[in-house]
């Protein structure tokens, strides 16, 4: 495990430095960073499942997408208040997370990975088939908006990301986190020590889906639009996984770094248009192969 005190320093540094952003950088970049905060929660939730529970989840967007779309559809088709729509989306996301518990208990790493990958394909197909409700490939715009004030939006995302980071770090370092790691490394041994693996897996998937679904819901309300390319497609899945790996798996804070790195890099590469995605993917591949512990291992030493 990485030194905890160093991780706390990295955490404080990230949120202090970014906290002054609205007064330093251009409004456009403030918008980009706001996106990066929501995205960082996707990556942290992924890390909680993969890094600590050993679940190879190729389908984080199955939870995120379900949460985002349910929020958008509730907002568009009912007159419920925004808060209720967000809660509805988050609950739907948790249900989507729980759907994956049964295969997670039965299957080993790569096979479980395939199921989650297929879950994303299936969600994508469903969105296309029910295009009259979901807007198909194009997506839908929704009326809801919390506030048009950019600075309020920024701090909402900033606070949400910070709270999520603290909550997930506490969970990961609690007895629950330890039991999850134990049951990932040796399920038989953990079971023989009278730990109810099923219970803990359900908890891990629920927590991960809770944060990623809530983040998806908030992102939709912030942008006022939802689409497959924003919250479902395999490209999004890969960005989440690359961010976690580049940042440093099994650290929760590392993924925040990775998320910022990827979002800002994509912004910087924008002039390359389509090729920017390829460059980001190539970079992800290089880090994956040469620095499997991620960039954070440069700052805080090897495990």
């Amino acid at each position: 495990m990485l030194g905890k005190s160093k991780l706390i320093i990295v955490f404080i540094a990230i949120f202090l430095i970014t906290g002054v952003a609205p007064w330093v950088v251009s409004p456009y970049i403030v918008g980009v960073i706001t996106m990066a905060f929501y995205f960082s929660v996707f990556v942290m939730s992924w890390d909680l499942l993969f890094g600590y529970s050993g679940e190879v989840n190729f389908g984080p967007t199955f939870q995120i997408g379900t949460g985002a779309y349910v929020t958008a559809l509730l907002n568009l088709n009912t007159s419920l208040p925004i808060g209720i729509c967000i809660i509805g989306g988050t609950v739907a996301s948790i249900i989507a997370g729980l759907v994956l518990v049964a295969p997670a208990l039965r299957l080993r790493g790569p096979y479980f990975g395939l199921i989650t990958l297929v879950s994303v394909f299936l969600l994508g197909e469903m969105i296309t088939i029910f295009a009259q409700y979901t807007g198909g490939e194009i997506g839908i715009s929704i009326p809801a908006i919390i506030t048009t004030n950019q600075i309020t939006n920024f701090y909402l995302a900033w606070g949400f990301s910070a709270i999520s980071a603290i909550a997930m770090t506490i969970i990961a370092n609690s007895p629950l986190g330890l039991i999850l790691q134990a049951s990932a490394q040796d399920p038989q041994e953990a079971e023989s020590l009278k730990f109810n693996i099923t219970k803990y897996k359900i908890l891990a998937f629920s927590v991960s889906a809770l944060f990623s679904g809530l983040s998806g819901a908030l992102l939709v309300i912030y942008l006022g639009t939802v689409s497959v390319s924003l919250v479902v497609s395999i490209a999004v899945v890969l960005q989440i996984i690359i961010s976690a790996i580049i940042g440093g798996r099994r650290t929760i804070i590392g993924p925040v770094l990775g998320a910022f790195f990827i979002i800002l890099l994509r912004q910087w590469l924008q002039p390359l248009e389509q090729l920017s995605y390829a460059v980001v993917s190539i970079l992800g591949l290089i880090v994956l192969m040469l620095l499997p512990d991620g960039l954070i291992s440069i700052f805080v030493g090897k495990r």
Binding site: F58, S281, L285, L288, P292
Partner: peptide
């Protein structure tokens, strides 16, 4: 973790090819 790395790396490889082809 090698199996997982192979899956992730080949998925990335797929994405790289796809994006270059689209370009």
């Amino acid at each position: 973790e090698k199996e997982v790395f192979v899956l992730t790396a080949t998925l990335l490889w797929s994405m790289i090819i796809e994006e270059i082809l689209i370009y």
